[in-house]
Design a protein around this nucleic acid. Structure first.
Lengths: 198, 198
DNA sequence: TGTAAGATACCGACCGGTCGGTATGAATTG
DNA sequence: CAATTCATACCGACCGGTCGGTATCTTACA
């Protein structure tokens, strides 16, 4: 069977995800990961050349998942304002499996700020989303559904909202219903963008 | 003189700040820090009981600095909306020495999510600021300068904006003028909060 | 004021232990 | 049986922290 190998690989990735999130990249040792995965060190280094390769694979998978969710939000709806409100629908999906992926998200960010390879992997999709938001806003301004705001700033504001909510949810998980708060916050922000009613 | 001791201590803190930011908490070894500070390992452990104690001290100092800047923003101005706009004035101060403190900010957050001592130190001021914002907004709503928004959500929105901007500035430092963008974003968000003009 | 006594600040070699990664051979698979 | 997949034993580097000892400064007393 070919599945044994793939299963081992998947176990390693899952274990790494868990331990990177729980302990951080440095503190989670290869041995820890192997133990968690129920796999030997030999198996680990058979499937991945380095510890960092595992990390990069997890980052890659995560970004792919994000892409899929955004693509879903994009479907239907021509209006720029509508697309944003649809993204609210993506919020539950992002927060759902939060326990594991939220700490990893922070770990990704921390590594990106000092590791060239991680940075390269992170920065491209970040800019893509950001610029996509900016063009959406530009379009919305042209359509008259948005006030004449600076698209650059507004796009970064949206990203800041997303990132900031994720981080607060990570720091203080049980305190709030972060889905509801994010949705409400999006509404407030959209008020700031939306053209005045006459 | 007593100053020699204090100078050594200050050197260690400065070196630790630099290296924690550049390499991360785990990767920055005590020896590295000592080398950077021009100090022996003995001196290090004379002034601090553990590596983590240095980290906590840096965190403490940073939070104190933030407190001071917020207190300054609070001065004058009774109106809730005015206080927020004054906080724009604090933005340059936060971004100014960014090279060193921004990566550390992320390091603080990452550690806080898994280290109990760091979490305790972080969560209290976080909640303080957040709740202060919420009460400001509540007041603003009562005064009629803000729309009837949910104060809880709005406060978290503001924190998210701050945190999200800091993180973007960290990830993509040279790309943008983050001061200007943060200011402009604040303006957009205040539009979302401000009561409709009649 | 000169000096002895003691406290404080600092040095750097060293320790037990852990790390990421490798070498090599056994088991499983097709 | 050939190749892939995994297990075990191991390596050298490095880590946080300790410790015995030295230098420097403060204090007290003659």
């Amino acid at each position: 069977m070919q599945t044994r190998s793939e299963e081992t690989r998947a176990n390693i990735l899952q274990a790494a995800l868990t331990l990177f999130a729980r302990l951080g990249y440095e503190a989670a040792s290869v041995e820890d990961i192997c133990a968690e995965a129920g796999v030997s060190k030999g198996a680990f280094y058979h499937h991945f050349p380095t510890k960092q390769a595992v990390f990069l694979q997890l980052l890659h998978d995560w970004l792919d998942g994000l892409d899929a969710q955004f693509a879903q939000a994009r479907q239907g709806a021509e209006n720029a304002a509508q697309i944003f409100m649809r993204m609210t629908a993506a919020v539950p999906g992002i927060f759902r499996d939060a326990d594991q992926r939220l700490p990893m998200f922070l770990e990704f960010w921390a590594q990106a700020s000092r590791d060239e390879a991680v940075w390269q992997t992170t920065i491209a999709p970040y800019r893509r989303y950001r610029d996509y938001f900016a063009s959406l806003i530009e379009q919305g301004v042209a359509e008259g559904v948005f006030r004449p705001v600076e698209p650059q700033a507004a796009a970064r504001l949206i990203v800041a909202l997303a990132v900031g909510m994720l981080l607060q949810g990570l720091l203080d998980p049980q305190e709030d219903d972060w889905q509801a708060i994010t949705t409400e916050s999006l509404k407030i922000m959209m008020n700031g963008l939306a053209a005045q009613k006459e």
